[in-house]
Structures are given as C-alpha cells and as structure tokens.
Nucleic acid binder design. Sequence first.
DNA 1: ACCTTGTTTCGACGTTCATCTAAGCACTGA
DNA 2: TCAGTGCTTAGATGAACGTCGAAACAAGGT
Lengths: 121, 121
Amino acid sequence: MTIDTLNADTPAAARPLPVLNACCVPTSTMGDDDAVSLAGMFKALADPARVKILSMLLNADEVCACDVSDGIGKTAATTSHHLKLLRDAGLVTGDRRGTWVYYRVVPERLAAIRDALALTR
Amino acid sequence: MTIDTLNADTPAAARPLPVLNACCVPTSTMGDDDAVSLAGMFKALADPARVKILSMLLNADEVCACDVSDGIGKTAATTSHHLKLLRDAGLVTGDRRGTWVYYRVVPERLAAIRDALALTR
DNA sequence: ACCTTGTTTCGACGTTCATCTAAGCACTGA
DNA sequence: TCAGTGCTTAGATGAACGTCGAAACAAGGT
C-alpha cells in the first residue's frame, strides 16, 4: 500500500507528486504575454470576412484592395476596417502603388501560428 | 499599343483578362461555409485564457479541469465557460471520470487549422 | 484647378463577448 | 441519506465587435 494506491484516482498530472489535495499540481502554463499575442492573432482571424481575405491572399500572393471588397461582398468601408485589423495583427501588409493598395500575407506570422498549434508530444 | 499597355498599372490578378473596369477580376474566394467554420475555430482561440488552456493541453495530453482553473487564474465558472467554447468548436474533448473531468486536444481539428494557414504557392 | 475613383476615418447602432455571483447538477464517502 | 467537493448553467453587466453611411484623404487624368 503506497501513495500510488491512495491517489489512484487523481489526475495524471498530479500523480507523480504526493500532495494532500488531490488535484493541484499546475501544468506548465504559457506566459501571459505569449498568450495575449497569440490570442490577438487568432482574434484577427475570428471573422469569416477576414478568413476569406486571408484565403484570397494565400492563393494570389498579392491582391488589390478593391478586389477584396468584391471578393468578400462587403462595403469598402467595412473591407478597409477588416484589412486594418489584419494589418494591426501583423498578418498582412499593404503598400500603396499609385491609386491602388496591394495586400499580401506575412508568411512568418502565419508560421508562428502554425507552430503554436503543433503538438509537442 | 495593346490592352496590356492600357492596363499596365492594373492589379496583378486582373492583368490576364481584358476587362473594361480596371480592377474587378475576382480572385477565387473561399466558400461561405468553410469561412464560417474556420472563423469559428479561430474565434474559439481568440482569448488569452483559451490559448493558455490549449497550451496546457498540448503539453500534457490530458488535464483535469481543476488544474485548468488554477493554470489560467480564473473562476471555476469562467473556466467552464471557456472550456465549453473550446468543446463546441471541436478543439478539445472532455470526459468525466468520477468526480473529475479530463480534457484533451483533438489533434485533427488543430491540423485543419494548420492546413488552412499553409501557403499554397 | 477641377472632377473622378480608390481608400481610410468617423460616428452611430445593434450584437456578441468575458466575467462574475449565485444557484443547480453530478459524484463520492461517511 | 446527507454533507462536501467538482463542475456547469443562469442571469446581469460593462466592454468590444461588425456593419454601414457620410465625410475626409490620396492620386490620377483632363
């Protein structure tokens, strides 16, 4: 009869350590800053319109803002708003060339999201 | 003097087709359903608390709900709310074993997000 | 200088969200 | 059967969000 049998029904994470309360060994938690930063990127993608925009940009390597408006079926004002959110999150960049503004993805930022979602075990 | 020179400053996506208005060839757009579905998963991750939860689950393969509460520093009620959103999005599953509920990630869903963010060119 | 067209900003409106407290449900052990 | 503990649901509240029309700004062409 050991501690193991006493704690037989405790969570897996808690089992290695003999603690009084059954359920309180904290799993290593991500830092606040990282969590906020990642959540910010996810928030930037948390709307169908912006997902569509990203999809357009992933398929075309460069897209004019006016095409984005048509592609997502939203007002120019609304489209500009969404593009700003994506820009602020660092997921896309836009540069003006004459009358038009051209947008492209920022591959490194997308890679950062992909990495964060990778299984570590 | 051809159409090409006339449209020399049109967006790249528009160039192949000789159209009257300079800027209106729609890039292939993702379907509404896919966009909504993907945005739903991103929305589920669009909060630091839920990012932390996912991080815990990615590192531990199974975590008790009570550990989640401690890990993210939120009320049990708030934690349960966040876990429900993650469950509804299909990103995690939880099963009750006796008193406690154990959560784990759903790798296929995370893979779906990763795939959606992959560059196609 | 003007007018036209593409883009962004502003202000407003209704909706959704994160959080808490309090109450309910699920399970265990005495 | 009852008390205690973990988890979820309900209701309320203040903040953030998506959308649009209107106005402002930027560039180009006449």
